[in-house]
Structures are given as structure tokens and as C-alpha cells.
């Protein structure tokens, strides 16, 4: 299978869907002539032109809302946010309009749209540019949220998101854009709401999403090599809908779990999962559900400090050793 970058995988997904469906178009800042701030849309404007790849002014509330309005008429906008942090300028559009219109119309309206872009810390861009709103947006019934951790999942989830008839928030990671994974040439889809067991194990389940999955895979290797602990790693892939079945099956087997995320701890995705586990399979648990998150302050700029703020393999291992 060819090895391609996470960035190329996303681009291929966009390109294939633009070709497949005439209603699919891309909208955002610097997506066309500049080729995308992070080059995810590189070459697409040249290939598909002004109609399908649209540069916007710096008006997030305006162009997110425009995408929502266009989706009302059945278009399928893929709205790029240069950073998910800039969604905060358009939060009303996302939550009140994309999130609530279907419900408030008694099901008369549906909004087939995607909002995508990077949502991550770790690049020293400071507190205003390092937000990770997967938990925030997943609190809105009506919105879906996915967080691909590999190129394979990025492509498969993006294609599914574009075909989905509800608003899907795709949260990517600038630190993964240049990383390579095997991605098949032939078409495939990754369904929303299906987690992926990225590594099999018996002693403990590490549950993660986004780049934290990569951290957990590293930790699992070290746990096996240095501590003879066999860790299973589950990549949620999709935050809402959430694949509870895969999580419960795994923890029924391992009886222990640590939820790892690069988000802040308060009401994070890990909090939801810990709650699910204790409620559903309390008797199966041999230890409290552990959590590893970013240290609970705004994102610090100082590069070596930001490294410490984000969860790393060492912190995951320490938490596992606490529980095993």
C-alpha cells in the first residue's frame, strides 16, 4: 500500500468528493490561490477553479454562516478554518445555527456540511491559537465531531463526513499533517461512530483520540518492553457519535482503563468516557478509570514548557503504573 501523508490523505478525500458530487465545494481563508495555510487544499483551486474552491475574507462568522445557509439548499460545503481556534469568532453560527436548526424546524431542515481544520496544541502558537474544542462542540446535540489520528482515518472519515447529511466537525492536527501512513489507492470510507483498536492488549485499555493515540501507541510499546504490561490502544476516531461498544468490550477484557487526551481535563472527552465505563461496567473495573490530559492552564507559549503541558508517553506510563 502506498505511504502518504495525513495532509495528502485529506486532500485526496476532498478532491475525490469534489469530483463525485457537484454540490461539494470548499470555502475558507487562503484555501484557493494560496493553496491553504497548511497546504491541505494544495492544487485544488488550480484543478477545480473558483466555483469549487472559494477564498473568503477574514470573516469566520460570515462564511461559516454562509456555508450553513448554502447547506439548507442542499449544497455540501466543506468549510476550512485555518485553525479551529478561529471557530470561536463564529461560535454562534456553529452552535445555534448548524447545531439547532434541524431540531427547531421539527426535522424539516438538514445541514449536510463539514467544518474542518487543525485543532491542536504543541506548536508554540500561544493560548489564542491552541484550542481543542472537540468536547465543547460535542456537547451540542445536532453536531458530530471526529478527530482522525492517522492518514488512513483522515481520508476515510473526511469522505464519510462530506457524504453525511448532518454537520460534521473534523478536527485535524498540524503536527500530523506531514506524517505518513499506509493508505490504499482504492476507495474506502470510515464510518462515523466506530472506534478502532490500534493495538491489542490484555492488561489495560488506553483510550485516546487525535494525536494522543500516537502517544498511547508509544507508551504501549514501552509498557510492554519495560514493564511487561500489555496495553490495548483504542482510537475513538469519532467523539460524537461515540462507539461505546468497542470501549466496553475492551475494558471487560482488561478490567482497567486510562483515557488520554490533549485537551484540558475539565468536562473533557475523558470525563464522558470515565462516566460511561463506571456506569455500564462498574463490576468489571479493577481500578478507577485514570485520565491523562493537558495540564490545566491556557496553552503556554514557551516551547519546552508547552511540551510538558501536553501529555507524553512518560505521563501515560506513570498513570498506568499507578493503576496496575
Amino acid at each position: 500500500m502506498p505511504l502518504i501523508t495525513y495532509r495528502e490523505a485529506l486532500k485526496n478525500a476532498l478532491s475525490e468528493e469534489i469530483e463525485r458530487d457537484e454540490n461539494v465545494f470548499i470555502l475558507g481563508e487562503e484555501v484557493a490561490q494560496y493553496n491553504g495555510a497548511y497546504k491541505v487544499t494544495e492544487g485544488l483551486w488550480k484543478k477545480y477553479g473558483d466555483k469549487r474552491v472559494v477564498d473568503t475574507p477574514i470573516s469566520e462568522a460570515g462564511f461559516i454562516g454562509m456555508g450553513i445557509g448554502a447547506a439548507m439548499l442542499g449544497l455540501r460545503p466543506v468549510i476550512e478554518l485555518m485553525f479551529w481556534s478561529f471557530a470561536y469568532v463564529g461560535f454562534d453560527q456553529i452552535v445555534n445555527n448548524a447545531g439547532c436548526v434541524r431540531y427547531m424546524s421539527g426535522g424539516l431542515v438538514n445541514l449536510p456540511l463539514v467544518i474542518r481544520g487543525p485543532a491542536n496544541g504543541g506548536t508554540n502558537v500561544g493560548a489564542t491559537h491552541s484550542h481543542t474544542p472537540e468536547n465543547l462542540l460535542a456537547t451540542t446535540p445536532g453536531l458530530k465531531v471526529v478527530t482522525p489520528a492517522t492518514a488512513y482515518d483522515a481520508k476515510g472519515l473526511m469522505k464519510t463526513a462530506i457524504r453525511d447529511n448532518d454537520p460534521v466537525m473534523v478536527m485535524e492536527n498540524t503536527l500530523l499533517y506531514g506524517e505518513k501512513w499506509e493508505v490504499p489507492d482504492e476507495e474506502y470510507l470510515v464510518p462515523l461512530g466506530v472506534a478502532d483498536v490500534k493495538r491489542q492488549g490484555n492488561d489495560i485499555t488506553l483510550i485516546a483520540h487525535g494525536r494522543a493515540v500516537i502517544t498511547c501507541l508509544k507508551a504501549a510499546e514501552l509498557l510492554a518492553a519495560e514493564h511487561k504490561i500489555s496495553a490495548e490502544v483504542i482510537d475513538l476516531r469519532s467523539i460524537r457519535p461515540l462507539d461505546e461498544g468497542t470501549l466496553l468490550d475492551s475494558v471487560r477484557k482488561t478490567h482497567r482503563a486510562v483515557v488520554v487526551e490533549e485537551n484540558k481535563p475539565f468536562c473533557g472527552v475523558g470525563a464522558q468516557i470515565a462516566s460511561t465505563l463506571q456506569e455500564a461496567i462498574f463490576d468489571e473495573l479493577d481500578a478507577p478509570v485514570g485520565r491523562v490530559s493537558s495540564l490545566d492552564g491556557p496553552a503556554i507559549y514557551s516551547p519546552p514548557l508547552e511540551k510538558k503541558q501536553l501529555p507524553d508517553a512518560a505521563r501515560v506510563i506513570a498513570k498506568v503504573l499507578d493503576l496496575c
Binding site: V125, G126, A127, T128
Partner: peptide, 8 residues
């Protein structure tokens, strides 16, 4: 204190 960076 190294917390904000260039933009802040």
C-alpha cells in the same frame, strides 16, 4: 514570562 509569545 514566556507565556504569551510573539503575538501576545
Amino acid at each position: 514570562k514566556g507565556k504569551g509569545g510573539s503575538m501576545h
